[in-house]
């Protein structure tokens, strides 16, 4: 049985757990936050550090909008306890355009119109980055496998696949064009 009534009672009466110091490197910057154990990595990133590019779509690990790289691996920040990440490196979407310059991967998403409402986009790009970091020329099945945990309701995914193929130099040309004054 998952929880008996006695245990529920005891869990209400117990003393509050003490907060603890968690040290993270977020996009190369050191951050120290004080959190209680029930706080998620997502809350630390969005609320404590204030990087709201990482999105909260379902808070239950089912949509991929909160995908960040933890020591280089894509994980779901909404179901990862902050205390479990002490001393680790976190990369968020903000880390991809340091100094305001978009990365080529982000440019490819613009070229293919692979963002619409944009809410899934940070997570999709972080999953894509994780894939491309380890596999610079992924096949379409590899792309699908890497992104199966990222829901997108707007695009139908076609443009996302095209953006990754374009970025990885696999014969897809930009669909959209940049502004140029006439």
């Amino acid at each position: 049985m998952l929880d008996s009534p006695e245990k529920t009672t005891s869990s209400v009466l117990r003393a509050r757990p003490k907060p603890r110091l968690v040290t993270l490197s977020i996009n190369g910057e050191p951050h120290e936050v004080v959190v209680r154990p029930h706080i998620m990595l997502l809350e630390v990133i969005r609320d404590h550090v204030g990087l709201t590019g990482t999105k909260d779509g379902c808070e239950s690990g089912t949509c991929g909008a909160c995908t960040v790289l933890l020591d280089g691996k894509p994980v779901l920040a909404c179901i990862t306890l902050a205390v479990e990440c002490d001393g680790m490196n976190v990369q968020t979407i903000e880390g991809l355009s340091e100094g305001g310059q978009l990365s080529d991967l982000q440019e490819a998403f613009l070229d293919q119109a692979a963002t619409q409402c944009g809410f899934c986009t940070p997570g999709v790009i972080m999953s894509s980055k994780a894939l491309l970091d380890s596999n610079p020329k992924p096949t379409v099945p590899e792309i699908k496998k890497a992104l199966e945990g990222n829901l997108c309701r707007c695009t139908g995914y076609n443009s996302i696949v095209d953006a990754i193929l374009q970025y990885s130099g696999q014969g897809v040309k930009p669909l959209m064009r940049k502004d140029g004054a006439p």
Partner: peptide, 28 residues
């Protein structure tokens, strides 16, 4: 026509791919 009928990139695109776009969820 120079802009109309053309595949111009999204105006809101840079905000959205960089995480700068502010959604209601992000306002505090």
């Amino acid at each position: 026509l120079k802009f109309i009928g053309q595949n111009m990139r999204r105006k809101d695109g840079p905000d959205k791919v960089s995480g700068k776009a502010v959604y209601s969820q992000d306002v505090k």
